[in-house]
Computed example of a mutant assay.
Amino acid sequence: MQMVITVTLNPALDRTLNVDNFTIGTVNRVTKARYDIGGKGINVSKVLKNFNIDSLCLGFLGGIWEDYFLQELKRRKISSNFTHIDEDTRTNTKVVDTLQGTFTDINEAGPDIKKSELERFMDTFEDSCKNGDIVILSGGVSPSVPSDIYGKLIKIAKEKGAATILDAEEELLKEGVKAKPDIIKPNIHELTKLVNLGEDTDEAIIKAAKELVEYGIKKVLVSLGERGAIYVTQNGVYKCDGLKVAVKSTVGAGDSMVAALAYSLMNNFSDEYTLKFANACGAATVMLEGTEACTLEQVKALVDNVLAKEEKY
């Protein structure tokens, strides 16, 4: 049976604080607070669960938040097999100021991962992957984890016959791309650093994405925020405009798009509809507070409003 495996090597408890007129250097009063288990792979699993897709969460958990994460995943009926570590899983703080329309992220670096802990995780990952699975590798890693980790995991997954989706940045993305994952989902800033993009015009983005496809990556989804997204595959080039929606939180929009890619693979969506569906997922997520996961109903309510078309290049 096909399984979706999500890898979160640096999970975080996401604490979202609503503060009116957030000001540096003064006492700020919180009007509302919420706590969500997070980390990009976990966020993907939360969305997939809302889409009635089971997944297996892998990665590292430790310290004071470990039990909270495991209880919350169990409550959501999401399977997991995290590798226990000695140090504490980190906390990320998001400050939302709706009066000023600002979103401020304060992210911790993450715990020190011992060599023995990393080796245990690698064994768990290899044992979990099998032919036909979809493996999603997303997010950052703590400073103690080598930057070629995703490249190694992609190689293992491909040897097992699994499809791979990579969503990372900087060195993690550069090293991961060398292993030729099936799909990557960079945003415009990540793509710019990956290929030294000189300008962020549609033409430049499409040219860069096409070169990545020629290199051996089957599909490249570039998220452009309010501008929409560009999707380049072995079949063609597709573009869609962004949806104008009320933004409550920008956290997790990219993770929802990654979940949409996996869901589209499982349902054999066309490239054009995949792009529409992914963009609707991102839009549905920014309308929610914290790192709350969008539902299939919320996405379906938006998907027909996404204007996507094939571009001739």
Rank of each mutant, 00 (worst) to 15 (best):
R76Y: 07
E126K: 13
V47T: 13
D105I: 07
M122V: 14
T124K: 15
K158I: 11
I149S: 02
S142L: 06
L73D: 04
F121Y: 11
M122R: 12
C57S: 15
Q71H: 13
S128T: 06
V96T: 05
R76E: 14
S116V: 13
R90H: 03
P111W: 01
K114Q: 14
T89L: 05
T98H: 10
I113V: 15
G110W: 07
V135R: 10
K114F: 13
N43Q: 12
P146M: 10
F69C: 04
T91A: 10
P143F: 09
T124F: 11
S55M: 12
S80M: 07
T83W: 02
L118V: 09
K158N: 13
K155Y: 08
S144Y: 04
V145C: 06
I64C: 09
T102K: 02
L48K: 05
E72P: 01
N52F: 13
G139T: 01
E108T: 02
E159P: 03
P146Q: 09
E66S: 15
E66C: 11
E87F: 03
L137P: 01
I113L: 03
C129R: 06
K49D: 04
S128P: 06
L118Y: 08
L99K: 14
G101N: 09
S147I: 12
K158Y: 11
K77F: 12
L73G: 04
F60S: 01
Q100P: 00
G132R: 12
F125R: 04
N50D: 10
